[in-house]
């Protein structure tokens, strides 16, 4: 049984086709990476799945129910929660209150929601900022806030839209650890990411988009050998580097 199924989803903006008959599935407990060059339609696809956009054609199923055309809050209530690439803190509210809003999805009880929020803030290393207005956070903190808030909703599927973009390499490492923690909790992840070194080692499966079309789908190992992916996105040089790294780890 699959957790998320995207079936021939098409999204048009006037004459522009941002997603053209994209299909893929996400199995429960796995990490799926969604990659592709800028303008490939990754964020658009995220917006379609999370109900922010009405899709032009196709169907989407989540956890056994069809979610095509549902408003975004209903999809979130079913357990598919996303973060935003362009961070959207609730600026005038504190970091804690931001995460608390997410935590209330698990029930109206104050004590439990506060405990959940505290835990998510700790997991995402935001404890020192908890009482600060969210608008005052540095960019790295805002990215972690996106993650903490979504995590607090207790999702089945967490959709991360470039949570590592613009972070320093130390911060990326921290974020990767957080993602591992999340997976250990049994949460399924769908991750849009540009940093290949971050996504390739942790993904069970990678879906590659280019110009709105899915050009490849498979385990990372096969993706880095795929001719179409190399020419469209990775580049020969980079692909060799990833292949070399794979060889190294095999010998080790």
């Amino acid at each position: 049984m699959t957790l998320l199924e995207v079936r021939e989803v098409t999204k048009k903006f006037g004459a522009l086709v941002a997603n053209d008959k994209v299909s893929f599935t996400v199995d429960p407990g796995t990490i799926v990476g969604l990659i592709g060059p800028n303008g490939a339609g990754k964020t658009t696809l995220f917006n379609c799945i999370s109900g922010l956009y009405a899709i032009s054609a196709g169907r989407i199923f989540f956890d056994g129910t069809e979610i095509t055309g549902l408003p975004s809050f209903r999809i979130a209530r079913l357990g598919a929660v996303r973060t935003f690439q362009v961070v959207r803190p609730l600026k005038e509210m504190t970091v804690f209150d931001n995460v608390l809003v997410g935590a209330f999805l698990q029930g109206a009880g104050n004590a439990r929601a506060r405990a959940t929020a505290e835990e998510c803030i700790r997991i995402c290393n935001l404890t020192e900022y908890a009482d600060k207005p969210a608008g005052d956070l540095p960019i790295g903190g805002k990215k972690r806030l996106e993650l903490a808030r979504a995590l607090a909703t207790g999702p089945k599927l967490l959709m991360l839209d470039e949570v590592m973009a613009g972070l320093t390499s130390t911060e990326v490492k921290g974020a990767m650890e957080v993602i591992h923690d999340i997976r250990r909790k049994g949460i399924t992840l769908l991750i849009v990411e540009h940093i290949m070194e971050a996504i390739m080692p942790i993904a069970d499966k990678v879906v590659v988009l280019d110009g709105g079309i899915k050009i490849a789908e498979g385990p990372p190992d096969r993706i880095i050998d795929d001719e179409r992916v190399i020419s469209a996105y990775l580049g020969t040089k980079f692909s060799r580097r990833l292949q070399a790294r794979r060889e190294e780890s095999k010998h080790a």
């Binding site: 929660v81 609730l90 209330f104």
Partner: peptide
């Protein structure tokens, strides 16, 4: 102010789409 409704109300003020992405029926 100190219960879910109040937090949701402020969340809608600060960002309707964000609130909806967290399951709030704005």
């Amino acid at each position: 102010e100190s219960h879910r409704f109040g937090y949701y109300l402020r969340a809608v003020r600060e960002g309707q789409e964000t609130a909806e992405s967290l399951g709030v029926n704005s």
